[in-house]
Design a protein around this nucleic acid. Structure first.
Length: 329
DNA sequence: TAGGCCATCTGGTCCT
DNA sequence: AGGACCAGATGGCCTA
């Protein structure tokens, strides 16, 4: 599942995440933010206390109900008041750091779910939803012990996601995003041409018929849409109808040695110049392993070609190889 | 301009 | 008592 090397060990260091926010333990970026926010807040606070003082004096009234501008000032709680202020200030700082830690964790989650993009970040809620779907889909894959249907896999990923996020996921797979519709129940439906055909038409096959399916296209004219859902006719792969229906039964035990190298990682690696916005799939494979298509969880076309437009990033391929290599050494 | 998303502040509650 | 955690309120930014 972790298709990227865990790059942020500092997030794992604390036994209880964010339990202690000592200044020394703050990451550099956080520390900067910390400083900035602190100074901002100090200024704001001073500003505030001045205003409060002014307002307090103006709100004081004499015996006739008129505003009292002069005279002895009402005694402030003094030391206790200052102490409360300081404690509130410290609590605010801690809370801010805690939220930053939470955001950092969310950011690292974004990096391990499909379709990571620096330029088009998933929102917090969408990240969590996608992560949940991803876990669910992978669990299903493991428990089924067979190669999943890519369409069903994507449908699972998109379950309950907003249309823009669905588009993003579809974009990752180089699929026609308009083919994935989310109905009012959050069910991801597939309509129109099969992505198999949209992306990789099989020579000689009916354009509207996915491989291995008998379907008749309407002669010549408009072709009726076929709607797919989990329980639809498109080789339903998952036994459970929906991730919303609870966690899939997982009676197996995840082995620590489990190798995820054969699983696709759908990532968007921004080019170094940061200009591109191209989504692609990255395939992680250990050196010496079998060829991409052979090792793939996904279907291979009758010609032995992979039916999807894969963008194998040689760089990440190599990096993964290095990691694996050093691991095995 | 409305709506979505986000960061921050704040007070309350729970836990150590 | 103090810190962590939580949820509500608020305001800023961005986009359709």
């Amino acid at each position: 599942m972790l298709t990227l090397p865990f790059e942020e060990p500092h997030l794992m260091r604390e036994p209880r995440f964010g339990a202690s926010y000592s200044r020394e333990s703050l990451p550099e970026s956080l520390e900067k933010e910390h400083d900035r926010s602190n100074s901002d807040m100090r200024e704001a606070e001073e500003d505030m206390s001045d205003r409060e003082e002014e307002e307090e004096r103006e709100s004081e009234q004499d015996d006739n109900g008129l505003p009292k501008k002069r005279g002895p000032r009402k005694k402030k709680p003094g030391k206790e008041f200052e102490r409360t202020k300081v404690r509130r200030h410290e609590a605010n700082t801690r809370e801010r750091c805690r939220m930053h830690g939470l955001n950092d964790a969310l950011e690292s989650l974004r990096k391990v779910v499909p379709c990571y993009s620096k330029t088009q970040k998933l929102s917090k809620i969408e990240t969590l939803r996608l992560a949940k779907n991803y876990i669910w889909a992978l669990s299903e894959t493991l428990s089924a012990g067979k190669r999943p249907d890519l369409l069903a896999f994507v449908q699972t990923l998109c379950k309950g996601l907003s249309q823009p996020t669905t588009n993003l996921v579809a974009g990752c797979l180089q699929l026609n995003a308009r083919n994935f519709l989310t109905d009012h129940n959050g069910e991801v439906m597939f309509s129109g041409r099969s992505p198999y055909d949209a992306v990789y038409p099989y020579p000689g096959s009916d354009v509207n018929t996915p491989p291995g399916h008998s379907g008749s296209s309407v002669d010549g004219g408009a072709k009726p849409f076929r709607h797919y859902s989990y329980s639809g006719a498109y080789e339903p792969y998952y036994e459970n109808p929906s991730p919303e229906g609870g966690s899939p039964p997982f009676d197996g035990q995840m082995s620590p040695q489990m190798n995820f190298n054969g699983i696709f990682s759908l990532k968007h690696d921004d080019p170094p110049d940061g200009k591109g916005n191209h989504y692609g799939m990255r395939y992680c494979s250990a050196p010496g392993r079998t060829a991409l298509a052979h090792n793939s969880m996904y279907r291979v076309s009758p010609e032995g070609r992979f039916p999807y437009d894969l963008h194998v990033r040689s760089q990440s391929f190599q990096a993964q190889g290095e990691v694996n290599g050093s691991f095995h050494n």
